[in-house]
Nucleic acid binder design. Structure first.
Lengths: 211, 211
DNA sequence: TTAGGATTTGTCCAACCGGTAAAAAATGCG
DNA sequence: CGCATTTTTTACCGGTTGGACAAATCCTAA
């Protein structure tokens, strides 16, 4: 009687497993074609089931996307949340940069999913940006400003600093094909993430002016 | 007799004007929905004509996209081309950053067009990346490495430096809605580009470690 | 074992999408 | 003007897409 699409919590083992399977497939498909560019058939294929079967677990395409992106947000924001006011500013920011580069290496699909959505004007996640992202950034911007006031960090706009860290680190996930095309076949190996991390830590703390 | 779709050069005044009109509309539509997410109807609407009429000027959707992106590439790479080996390294890089930020402010659609395409694996522009972008970056990377050897610039990987400049500056075009959502209504005005330029110049040259 | 719910499949549909064909209208030129 | 050429419109087509629905099958607990 109870269709799983109506249930907020899956009732059976199968429902839990299949919903996971679908979300994994949806991540794969949505992250590489965007919302409009992805079809339910593609997701169903990737999940190894028929379209009607998939639609038994999710009301529609929109609901798959929403479920997926809401579930991923916490993972995605985790590195920023871990920024610890009590820690040493330089150490904290260095490991934030490192963690973000590792996320680009290990979870590029998640990065591209968000990038795709924001690029198209974030019509489906604007709430999340204002409701969860902004408060978190506001909070951490205060922390960074506090660090700057102690003199342990040069004074700069903390918001643009956070943007700069996002941009540079996520670049290696979102624009991976470009990075690889420019670096060429010899330098395009897995080492690029380690190189990027080293470069960025140096750039962010020392800058380009020789000392 | 001669259909304009077969002609490399438009023959009449109307053909020149209408093709321009279509490309302008296509930029608007492609840049905000990506290739697959855009429909010929949307572009035709934006250009104020019917779909068959549009298809009188371009063979198909693919040709509109290719024409558009090839025409835009030069504009897009112009700032990097202007990097002058003979100039002062710091001045040259500062104005490169400024120009790129100005491009994000003045031509955000062009930035998003490329971003959208690269995010989805660059299936339609991979040739351009390898054939035009890589050689240019290789050349400019050599220039930057030369500057570093003179001691006027700290030593760092020039490729990752270029990536970092692209990432941070284009972020303000590609992720504009996120930037605005995080900065909030009070700081979301046009000043954000000027703030960004100031922040980035300082970051790239001085870094975050207090002096 | 078996009834009742959970799951899966096959079938179908209306809207949309890229693109074509041909007729109609507008344009330009001698 | 008269006529050829260019441009626009109308009508249409085959394929795809999101989604509905009911029949068939599977599972599980009593």
């Amino acid at each position: 009687m109870n269709a799983p699409t109506a249930a907020s919590q899956p009732r059976t083992r199968i429902q839990r497993e299949k919903r996971e399977l679908i979300l994994e497939a949806a991540l794969e498909v949505f992250s590489s074609h965007g919302f409009r560019g992805s079809t339910i058939d593609q997701i169903a294929d990737a999940a190894g089931m028929s379209k009607p079967n998939l639609l038994y677990y999710f009301r529609n395409k929109e609901e798959i996307f929403q479920t997926l992106i809401h579930r991923l947000l916490d993972t995605w924001l985790a590195p920023l949340r871990e920024l610890d006011e009590a820690g040493d500013p330089e150490t904290e920011l260095r490991s934030y940069i490192r963690r973000k580069i590792e996320m680009s290496r290990d979870y590029p699909r998640e990065s591209r999913l968000f990038a795709n959505e924001i690029l198209q004007g974030a019509p489906r996640i604007m709430e999340m940006l204002r409701g969860e992202l902004k408060p978190l950034v506001d909070e951490k911007a205060k922390v960074i400003r506090g660090w700057m006031r102690t003199g342990k960090l040069a004074t700069a706009d903390p918001y643009h600093l956070i943007f700069a860290i996002w941009a540079t680190t996520q670049h290696y996930a979102d624009f991976d094909v470009q990075v690889c095309a420019v670096l060429g076949p010899d330098r395009g190996g897995e080492g690029r993430f380690e190189d990027a991390a080293r470069f960025l830590e140096k750039l962010f703390f020392d800058g380009l002016r020789p000392r």
